[in-house]
Structure formats: C-alpha cells, structure tokens
Simulated scan of single mutants.
Amino acid sequence: MATIEEVETHHDPIDRLRATMCATRVSFEWFGTRKSLTRDQKAQAAESFGAEGEFLSAGKKLLDTGHPRFRAVSAVRNQVRKYWTSVSLPFPEPGIRLLRQDALNTFQEQMHRFTEELAEAVAELDEQYLSLKAAARERLGSLFNDDDYPTTLVGLFEVTWEFPSIEPPNYLRQLNPELYEQECQRVQSRFEEAVRLAEDAFLDELSKLVSHLTDRLSGQADGRPKVFRDSAIGNLHEFFERFRSLNVRSNEQLDALVSQCQNIVEGIQPQELRKRDALRQQVASDLSGVQAALDGLLVDRPRRQIIRTPK
C-alpha cells in the first residue's frame, strides 16, 4: 500500500486529493436566543404601527448575548470554525471539508480540547443564568414568557464532528454496476471541483494578504508611511505553512508565486521594515510584482483547467 508521501509524489492533483484526504463535518447544537412573537403579540405590536399582524415579522431576544460569559461561549464556536477551516480544504457539498488523513489524530485531539473548553464556558455561563433571565424579564416586560427558558443551559451548547463517507458504497458494485459507475463519476466530478475550490481559496487569500501588506508598506497617511501590524507579515507566514501542508499542486503558476512571495519576506522582521525605508520600499516593490501576477491569475480563473497527469 502506497504511503501518503508516495501518493503526493506520483499522482495528479485530483487523485492526490482523493487518496490523501478524508471528509469531515463539524456541527453545532446551540441554544437559540431569539424567538418569534406569538400571533397575539405580533398583532399588538402591529397595532402601534397601524399595520396588520400577518404582514409583520417580529421576534424577541431571550438573553443578553453581549454578556461576557455568553461571549466566551460564542468565542469557542468561532475558534472551532477557524481551526477547522485552517486545517482543511473546501468540498462542493454543504457542511463538508477535506482533512489530511495524516492530520486525523491531531484534529481529534484538538476537537476534544474544544469540547472541554466549551463545557467549561457553558458551566460558567450557567452560573449567571438566573441573573441573565431576570434581566430579560425586566427588558422584555409583557413579552417575557417563562416557558421560553430551560431550567439550565448545560447541555444546550455542543460541538460534534464526524467523518462521513463520500465514496460510492461498495455494495452498489454488485447490486447495480451501472448505478455504481454513475456514482463513481459523480464523486470524481466532486473532487475535480474540490481541487478548483482549493486553488481558488489559496489564490484569494494570498491576493488579499499581499494586497494589504503592499498597501501598508507603500501607502502614505498624512504625509507619513502607513502603520502596519506585525500580523500583516505573521499572517503571510501562517499562509505559507498552511499552503505547504494542504496544497495539491494543481497550478504551477500559483506555486511559483507563493515561493516568490515567501522569498521576499523570508527572514524580515516587522521592526526592520519600520526602521529601514529602503527595505520597506524594496519589499513593497517586490510584492507589487507578485500582486500583478496574482491579479492576472484571478482574471484568468474561469478559463483555467486542471491538467491531469497521464497514467
């Protein structure tokens, strides 16, 4: 059986993606903090506007989601989404992304850590639940309904993940060979699209990062060089690492531009760019060349095709 390294070396982009990736789905169960008004409540609200209740859409906010404890719970969900996106590639089926098979254990461990963080954040939120509920009672007035509120928030915020099969089921080969072949073609087309989606995602991200840094380095504000954060360069380095890990090598031009951009900023510290005007101008000029080439790829994107390696 070939190793992932061997597959990456000898297969074309589509086969490489299919052989080295697994499908992942991350789902959230989240307590809904908004609720539609009842028919009578909408009619009452509509009356104040001289409108008819059936033509009015209205809702109420059950809890203050701006509370620090609630924001802490929401922050975990945002972290999960950001992490999942950073270690995976898009796939043309809703809710599914592709994860490297050799990153599966790391992914599992990190997701378990997130579930622990979420449970802790929810427990701390639940400690403030009664006071949040009391504040809602005061704010909502006659719209408050005790039946809208569970006895506890524990167990109402969860993150789960799974690894769904996206390959044709083997039993179809025996039961219906023609249908099995159709499914094989459908899956193949999905992976062809996945390669294009991955390439486009990398292209868009690199273009935004380079454009932002170039503007910061070359632009002026009130006659002075624009201020830029360390993250303007740090985000580029994070991109290079993610590209190295997830790139399916479907576009030689993009690969070359990523290498060129990496060479431009390699070893350069943000503070150097702030102190040395000549270096700042040189880096800005070099990045402008990369940006021009990226713009060309963006324009040509609809006409690009994936070239498969002959077998």
Rank of each mutant, 00 (worst) to 15 (best):
M1T: 15
E5R: 10
T9V: 02
T9N: 11
D15Q: 12
R16S: 13
A19E: 14
T20N: 12
C22F: 09
V26G: 01
S27H: 00
F28Q: 13
E29Y: 11
W30I: 14
G32D: 12
T38S: 15
Q41K: 08
K42F: 03
K42C: 09
Q44T: 11
S48T: 15
F49K: 11
A51N: 05
G59M: 08
K60Y: 08
K61M: 13
K61F: 06
G66M: 01
H67G: 06
R69V: 15
R69I: 05
F70C: 12
R77S: 05
Q79G: 04
V80P: 01
K82H: 10
S86R: 05
P90Q: 10
P90H: 05
P94C: 00
G95M: 01
G95D: 05
R97M: 02
M111I: 00
R113L: 14
E116T: 13
A119N: 09
A119W: 01
A123N: 13
L125F: 13
E127R: 15
E127N: 07
E127Y: 07
Y129H: 12
K133S: 04
A134Y: 02
A135T: 08
A136W: 09
R137T: 04
R139N: 10
G141P: 09
L153T: 07
L153G: 07
T160A: 09
F163A: 09
P169W: 03
L175Y: 04
L175T: 02
P177K: 06
Q182G: 06
C184N: 08
C184H: 04
Q185G: 00
F191Q: 06
E192Q: 11
V195Y: 03
V195D: 03
E199N: 14
D200Q: 12
S207Q: 10
L209I: 09
L217K: 01
S218V: 00
A221P: 01
G223V: 08
V227I: 13
S231G: 03
E241N: 13
R242Q: 15
F243I: 09
F243T: 06
R244C: 02
L246E: 01
N251W: 04
Q253C: 06
V258Y: 05
V258C: 03
C261S: 12
Q262T: 06
I268P: 01
A278W: 07
R280L: 14
A284N: 04
V290N: 10
L294Q: 11
D295I: 05
P302R: 05
R303N: 14
R304M: 06
I306T: 15
I307P: 00
